[in-house]
Amino acid sequence: MKISIQINEGPYQHQASDSAYQFTKAAIAKGHEIFRVFFYHDGVDNASRFTVPPQDDRHIVNKWAELGIKNADGSDVELVVCVAAALRRGMLDESEASKNGIDGNNIHPAFRISGLGQLIEAGIQSDRLVVFGD
């Protein structure tokens, strides 16, 4: 089955991203296809490559990133960060940084920035969409 995920909260503050990650991992292990993981609201903070948790804690960003390179049938899990929500919260990739004249970028390369249409498209294309939030 094709499943998509929406994550509304950032890492560490809420369990949402952890729950979504455990769910996604279990779904892939069962042979389901994760069509897309869409990061919205503060969920965009899950894509920061500047995240440095203490050594004895999980690294949520890297966990998502690692999932991104090994999905069920070999296809990538799409980790999509909402552009409007990201820019608002200071989350920029190289292209958005240069467009906005900012001398730095922080989106982990396993994630990509895109529009809200990607969330709707995930709802249309997937058999299920599961929301994780506060």
Binding site: G115, L116, G117, L119, I120, I124
Partner: peptide, 11 residues
Amino acid sequence: EVVLIAAAFEQ
């Protein structure tokens, strides 16, 4: 904001 974008998808 999602609802306004979604309108373009004619769902």
